[in-house]
Design a protein around this nucleic acid. Structure first.
Lengths: 335, 335
DNA sequence: TGTTAGCACTTGGGCATGTTGAGTGCTAAA
DNA sequence: TTTAGCACTCAACATGCCCAAGTGCTAACA
């Protein structure tokens, strides 16, 4: 058997199966694709493919379906990313051009991506390493409760309520606010952990403890709050794509609800700067996603966008959509 | 037939069906509940109930299942709200006592409620009519782009990016900020629409247009941004509860994703201050929820909490959980 | 008048059986 | 290496059958 034809057969099987949702047999293959050989030859090739673990037969006399490994090879070596249709490009343009809030943009992005791919779309809040401190605000909510607000020049706003060890006055907060602001305005968020201690040291001794608490709050706002959130849309697509045969949708929904799981999933995926990364079926670190694939890529300075869907998905088109959306996102939000 | 027994039969049918998921017949009924009569009598009663549209038979020789109308009567007249178990009370206490962020509290609330009821939990952001303006911030993001931040004394933070008509300087924003702050600090958010115009009028003519834009931004932050958001958790429960027979889960997921739909749904439900409100099956204004019920109630100053699940749910227990959670929420967030 | 026992009737679900068609693997020839 | 041919396998579907659960009705009963 010739190597190129073998790949061609695999490609045909994947495409047909994705399209029809049914195991594909040798005869149907030669009819739909004009490979220049007979069904018997295809059968031989299929036997080899099966031996190599690239395809499998649900039962003795049914067609073959791709295995995770088969999809993997398909994605890595065969499929070429399809260009988006003009209509899709237009959709991306028009939906993402409104120059609004970061939150707004992200929300529209997931929506768009889920509609484009008919899958569940997920986006991580952008990394803001290079963001600078714009403003700091301390608001006294209760005698021992302070709301800490950190505003970056990128337009992202972080907030957190913290507990003060002892009663606090508005005056003290005013004072501390100007101290902090004077010293860290314009500083990179990423550098806060290094800068904050010295600011605390400058504060009057009687406020030192409060300052320490506030600094701690600011720091946690700077590194975690934003980057560790995700947004998603299109969960209804899960139900749609599995209308006939029951992929267990439950575990998938559970995974989607656990932000921690999704975040780990996304960050575990290599950050291939050339293109999108695909994680197929059991390659996923989470058991509930054994029948699902994730297609994701980075945008901006390292955060992820992507989709999640059944292993049986149209990889070329999906990958194209994810890549395109990520590019626009990078452009809009800046590197 | 005696009226009280008829109701008793309906109650028994509902309870058995909720529990077993299977149509319940006359014989099984007399066995499991010690009504003092024979199955034949029950059959007669059932015939009457069916005539009144309270129960229905899937096919000729199967048991009966409650109709929407049957559930309605059950909820309105029969079921008495069950007290929560001690364990459940404890769960509510411990999970909601951490004195954190509003967002934090709400997030934990939906989680708790979904676990308590095994349904999808939904909570609307609290109405903050009585909240006072604590702070206002304008941040220049780009020459024509300003981030408007509004902080209330309740700890809620609203933010929005707006487009300025012409180039803007930091100095101008500084000036406007202090003007605004001086005039509206301490004002009720709900009163902003009345107060803001006069503030704008006080600004220097050359900044009047910008001030107008900013005021508009503040106003939209005050009335809409927070109250029109919802949080939800437990969508995976949808899949679980319908594992055997396929309630079309797709439309429900779609509804859940559309915040607008959910918001309307919640606010359309009467604001019965005495207890929880239930909307059953086709009573729901949204078609996709024809096989679902919503159990909700108000908390704080009018926002809603509730759950969504299949019509075949354990109403008494669910209602108890919703009510209990709402009470705690009111207590924590203050009226 | 309401309740009960008895009985004929309906019907979905389970089961055993038969049939069909798609698809395979193998062999022998080209 | 490819191909035609053929025996074989097996899920899916259909058919017929029986059974159990459940109903509605009628006639007797308290």
């Amino acid at each position: 058997m010739s190597e190129p034809r073998k790949l061609e057969v695999l490609r045909a099987i994947v495409e047909d199966y994705v399209h029809s949702r049914e195991p594909v047999g040798s005869k149907a293959l030669v009819e739909r694709h004009h490979l220049g050989v007979s069904s018997a030859t295809i059968r031989n090739d299929m036997a080899v493919l099966e031996e190599e673990g690239l395809i499998a037969a649900p039962h003795t006399s049914a067609g073959r379906i791709p295995t995770d490994k088969g999809y993997r090879l398909f994605v890595d070596r065969i499929s070429q990313v399809k260009p988006l249709s003009a209509a899709e490009r237009r959709a991306i343009h028009s939906l993402l051009e409104g120059p609004d809030d970061v939150d707004d943009i992200l929300e529209r992005t997931v929506r768009l991506l889920s509609q484009l791919t008919n899958q569940v779309a997920v986006v991580q809040y952008p990394h803001s390493n290079r963001a600078l401190v714009r403003h700091v605000e301390f608001v006294l909510l209760a005698p021992k409760q302070v709301l800490v607000v950190l505003i970056a020049d990128t337009g992202s706003v972080g907030q957190k309520v913290i507990e003060a060890g002892s009663d606090t006055s508005n005056e003290a907060l005013m004072l501390l606010r100007s101290r902090f602001l004077g010293n860290i305005a314009g500083t990179q968020l990423a550098l806060l952990p290094q800068v904050l201690p010295s600011v605390v040291a400058l504060c009057p001794p009687e406020l030192r403890s409060l300052a320490q608490t506030l600094a701690h709050g600011l720091q946690s706002l700077s590194d975690t709050s934003r980057e560790e959130r995700i947004l998603m849309a299109g969960t209804a697509n899960l139900a749609r794509s599995n209308v006939d045969f029951p992929l267990s949708i439950g575990p998938v929904l559970e995974a989607l609800e656990e932000q921690v799981v999704m975040l780990r999933l996304l960050s575990d995926m290599g950050d291939d700067p050339r293109g999108v990364t695909v994680s197929i079926g059991r390659e996923n670190p989470y058991d509930g996603l054994a029948e699902a694939s994730v297609v994701a890529t980075g945008y901006g300075s390292g955060a992820k966008v992507g989709i999640l869907g059944p292993t049986r998905m149209d990889y070329p088109t999906t990958m194209a959509a994810v890549r395109a959306v990520a590019r626009y996102l990078s452009r809009i939000l800046g590197g």
